Computed example of a mutant assay.
Amino acid sequence: MDDRVLSETVTITGDGGAQLEAYSATPLDRTPRGGVVVIHHMPGYDKATKEMVRRFAAEGYNAVCPNLYTREAPGAAPDDAAATARSLGGVPDERLVGDVAGAAAYLRGLENSNGRVGVIGHCSGGRQAFLSGCSLDLQAAVDCYGAFVTEAVPEGLPLRVGPIGHLAKDLSCPLLGLFGEEDKHPSPEAVAELERLLTEAGKEFEFHTFAGAGHAFFAVDRPSYRPDAATEGWKLTLDFFARNLA
């Protein structure tokens, strides 16, 4: 079996026809396979996120992560780009949907695509993964501790986004949610509210909450990292995508 993977910076077409920097990783064999759009977290288009893209390729998926801050800070270091984006209130929801749509189109246009695309995001990207699943034709969505889906942004935080829980009725695909029991954004109460909305809407979803974990438990380079929760989270994610993107 050919296990070679090509990882490279590419250009994709995002919302409004904008040309966006993106990081792509694809297996080199011609076997038809699903694709994964990786939505980076608030700290930006960084090394940790690119490593996730490469891992999905190593696991057999085409994967791409659009740099959502390309417009505000082209060519800037991740920390500087993130600071610029924060100062502007974050990525507008409508634009995010258009950018993810462009990333999904890029994946579906690859020669070895089977046409099925999922999305995953962590932190702000988790919220945006849910938003994408409710706004686009996708086959799977993974929300990793996405904040402010059902609750408002507290005063003092720079984000200018509102709750989007009311979009649960529009979810187009199965949803996997991975959360920390000790997280404050989203809190267990906020997760329970999203679960209620999805249940009332009759949507297919599964949520897992990890004891002893707070926000960003996947982040290997932070004190918040929880190896057991992250390992199980990866296992659940790969099983979920195997069931929905194959």
Rank of each mutant, 00 (worst) to 15 (best):
A190M: 05
H122D: 03
D93C: 04
G16Q: 11
C123S: 15
N244Y: 14
A22N: 08
G98K: 12
Y106K: 14
G89Y: 03
P66Q: 11
N244S: 08
D15C: 02
E206D: 14
A211F: 09
C173H: 13
A83L: 05
L107F: 11
G102H: 08
K203Y: 08
P154V: 04
A152V: 04
P227S: 06
T231R: 12
R95E: 08
D137N: 09
R222Q: 14
G133N: 05
A73M: 01
E206H: 15
V100G: 05
D80L: 10
R160N: 02
T150G: 09
V153I: 12
L138W: 02
R95I: 00
G162K: 15
K184P: 00
F210M: 01
D228W: 03
V38I: 12
R30D: 13
R86M: 12
E8Q: 15
L176E: 06
A103E: 07
Q19V: 00
Y45F: 15
A201E: 07
P188I: 01
Y61G: 07
A101Y: 07
A168Y: 05
F56M: 12
E232W: 06
L28E: 15
Y69R: 11
P174T: 04
G34A: 02
A229C: 04
G214Y: 05
G177I: 02
Q139G: 01
